[in-house]
């Protein structure tokens, strides 16, 4: 479109690259040297002796177990969202009933309920249900709070299926469940992958619910592990940053191989 390269924009972009890249570089470099090397040389110097001991130490301190917990929470949240949201969106798009419209408005308003606002009653409910310090107690609210965005995204996608296709299926006398499985689901694959990625990210990066609803080491998730590491051994910066790198590694791998789906999921509402 433009013939002339935009030098000013180029300069600005390099400044931003520096602001984004430097912290990431410092983080990686720190994790690859011993604690004494790091405090002696400072964060900005290049590591002299490479070591992976920070990473192995993190696993030794229980991060492997935290990973399993986070993975379990993530899988369960995605499963719940995938089971509940597509039928909901289908009803919102195709049903003309007042109740369905009301349900949609509940989810729209739910978009604005901050998780912070409900942690006290959530603590009450989960404790009463005997699910305190149990991963199920983390899974249920996390799934509920990723539903509004997922419903909005998927409803938007399903609305773009043309009415002709529904009419064609109606000619064959197809009941709603056949329309759902043979028409609606196959045609909203893009939306489905978006809500999978979005809810998975919510679960993987979730911090607040695990913070107030779990306590023991056995039900600790990665984000909480990071926080505890920081409050307890904050002085071991290479070990701490290695844990940060580990926590983002799975998402980074997804980013490398499924960039489009991940970006769509990250955008959630914004991307629609």
């Amino acid at each position: 479109m433009r013939r002339r390269p935009n030098y000013l924009a180029g300069l600005g972009s390099l400044v931003w690259l520096f602001l984004v890249g430097l912290p990431l570089y410092v983080m990686l470099a720190a994790t690859l040297q011993s604690q004494s090397d790091y405090s002696e040389n400072g964060p900005l110097s290049f590591p002299k002796h490479f070591t992976f001991s920070n990473y192995s130490q993190d696993f030794h301190n229980g991060f492997g177990h935290y990973f399993l917990n986070t993975l379990l929470v993530t899988l369960a949240v995605v499963a719940i969202v995938l089971a509940l949201v597509p039928p909901l969106s289908y009803a919102i798009v195709r049903s003309r009933g007042r109740l369905t419209g009301a349900a949609f408005r509940v989810f729209l308003l739910g978009l604005a309920i901050p998780a912070q606002a409900v942690i006290v009653p959530m603590f009450y409910v989960i404790s009463k249900a005997g699910l305190y310090d149990n991963l199920i107690g983390v899974i249920l609210p996390t799934a509920a709070f990723s539903m509004p965005v997922c419903a909005l995204v998927l409803t938007g996608v399903m609305r773009d299926i043309t009415p002709d296709l529904y009419e064609a299926m109606a000619m064959d006398g197809a009941p709603p469940w056949r329309v759902f499985f043979q028409l609606v689901l196959p045609l909203s694959k893009g939306g489905l992958s978006t809500i999978v990625v979005f809810s998975a990210l919510q679960a993987w990066n979730g911090f607040l619910f695990p913070l107030v609803l779990t306590q023991s080491d056995s039900s600790k998730v990665v984000t909480l592990g990071l926080y505890n590491f920081q409050t307890e051994h904050g002085i071991d910066i290479p070990g701490l940053l290695a844990a940060v790198v580990l926590s983002m590694l799975p998402i980074f791998i997804v980013y490398l191989f499924a960039r489009r789906a991940l970006v769509q999921g990250l955008m959630g509402v914004g991307g629609k």
Binding site: L84, P87, L88, A91, R94, M147, P176, V179
Partner: peptide, 17 residues
């Protein structure tokens, strides 16, 4: 000809939420 899904399709998600 066109059969629309009933509110029942929206119930599980709404209830959960």
């Amino acid at each position: 000809a066109v059969i629309r899904p009933s509110f029942a399709w929206a119930v599980p998600a709404t209830l959960f939420f």
